[in-house]
Amino acid sequence: MSLRSRLNRLFRRKQKSSSVGGFTFIELLVVIFIAGGIISGLLYLVVELLGVDQREASRNETQREMQLAMDYIATELREAVYVYNDCYLPQGSRTNPDGDPNNPDDDYCPGLINHLPDALTSADNIPIIAFWKQQPIPTVLKEQCASSPTPPDNIPCRTASSYALIVYSINRADSDIWKGKARITRYALTQFKSDGSLTPGYAPPEEGVSVRFDRWPIGANSASRQAVLPRDTSAVLVDFLDDGSGADFIDTDETADLASCPDDYSMIPNQDVLTTIGAPAIRSFYACVDQGQSNTNRDVILYIRGNAQGRPGISGEASFLPTLETRVLSRGVLGRAP
Rank of each mutant, 00 (worst) to 15 (best):
L3S: 08
R4D: 11
R4S: 15
L10G: 02
F11Y: 11
R12N: 03
K16T: 06
K16G: 12
K16C: 06
S17E: 14
G21F: 15
F25E: 01
I26V: 14
E27V: 04
L28P: 03
L28M: 15
V30S: 04
F33E: 00
S40M: 12
L42R: 01
E48M: 10
V52N: 10
V52H: 05
D53S: 08
D53R: 13
Q54I: 15
A57T: 07
R59C: 10
R59K: 09
N60V: 06
T62W: 03
E65T: 09
M66L: 00
Q67P: 05
L68G: 03
L68N: 13
M70Y: 04
M70N: 02
I73N: 06
E76L: 13
L77F: 02
R78C: 02
A80E: 01
N85C: 03
L89F: 04
Q91F: 13
T95K: 15
P97C: 06
P97W: 06
D105Y: 08
D106I: 10
D107A: 14
L112Q: 09
N114L: 02
L116N: 02
P117E: 14
D118V: 07
L120N: 12
T121D: 02
D124R: 12
D124V: 10
N125Y: 08
I129L: 13
W132S: 05
K133Q: 11
P136N: 05
L141M: 00
C145F: 06
P156W: 01
P156V: 11
R158C: 03
T159L: 07
S161E: 11
L165W: 10
L165K: 00
L165P: 08
I166N: 09
V167P: 10
Y168V: 09
Y168P: 00
R172F: 07
D176I: 05
I177H: 08
W178L: 08
W178S: 11
R183H: 04
R186E: 13
Y187S: 08
T190Y: 02
L198P: 02
P200S: 11
P205G: 11
E206F: 01
S210A: 10
R212W: 07
D214N: 07
R215E: 06
R215S: 03
P217D: 03
R225S: 05
R225E: 14
V228R: 12
V236E: 14
F240L: 09
L241Q: 06
F249C: 15
I250D: 07
D253E: 14
D253A: 12
E254M: 12
T255V: 13
T255I: 14
T255E: 13
L258H: 03
D264Y: 05
Y265T: 00
S266R: 05
T276L: 13
I277Y: 11
G278V: 12
G278N: 06
P280C: 01
I282C: 01
Y286L: 04
D290T: 05
I301R: 03
G306L: 02
N307R: 02
G310H: 07
P312Q: 11
G313D: 12
I314E: 03
G316R: 00
A318G: 02
L324M: 08
E325T: 15
E325M: 12
R327E: 06
R327T: 15
L329N: 11
V333Y: 01
L334G: 14
G335L: 04
A337I: 15
P338W: 15
P338Y: 05
